[in-house]
């Protein structure tokens, strides 16, 4: 060991305490915000406004709401919403793949923005730049051969 055990234990104790405090600083406001967003159907309203972006991303308008849920609140919320929608009215294979591309590059921006903000990262980069990157990659992916072939298969 490159330090005495005294120093190591001291650091472990201090670090654990600050980990607990920092996590509480993230989780409690985050969960309150999530509850408020759900109570007032904020994401649904936002998704209605952003449906116009569906065309550029090669998706149908129906895919925008589950995507927004996933991007804003987290991947498990998004997956839950998309399963619910699929049980009523199946989204196309192409919609699902593009949903996956976006969601697996960028999800839970509130959660991760707060978490990494407190951890000392740039909040603008981990939220806005990441969102922008995922959007651009999805727009490009929608125009690739693989994704367009999915559309042909279905027709």
């Amino acid at each position: 060991m490159s330090e005495s055990w005294d120093v190591i234990f001291r650091e472990m104790l201090d670090g654990s305490i600050s980990t607990v405090l920092n996590l509480l600083k993230v989780m409690v406001p985050l969960m309150i915000l999530t509850e408020v967003l759900m109570t007032y159907n904020v994401v649904e309203k936002l998704a209605k406004k952003l449906e116009g972006l569906a065309g550029i991303m090669g998706m149908s308008r129906n895919a925008i709401f589950p995507l927004m849920v996933g991007v804003i609140m987290g991947v498990s919320y998004g997956a839950g919403t998309i399963m619910e929608i699929n049980s009523r009215n199946n989204l196309s294979k192409k919609d699902m793949m593009l949903f996956g591309v976006f969601i697996f590059m960028c999800h839970g921006i509130i959660e991760t923005g707060m978490l990494f903000g407190i951890a000392g990262a740039s909040v603008i980069v981990v939220t806005l730049v990441r969102l922008l990157l995922a959007f651009v990659v999805t727009v490009i992916a929608a125009r690739t051969r693989w994704i367009r072939n999915l559309e042909k298969q279905q027709q």
């Binding site: 607990v20 996590l23 509480l24 989780m27 409690v28 406001p29 985050l30 969960m31 309150i32 915000l33 999530t34 509850e35 408020v36 759900m38 109570t39």
Partner: peptide, 13 residues
Amino acid sequence: ALMDGTLKGLKTA
């Protein structure tokens, strides 16, 4: 929402 959020936050933490 505030109460549920606080409880869920503590539980998740």
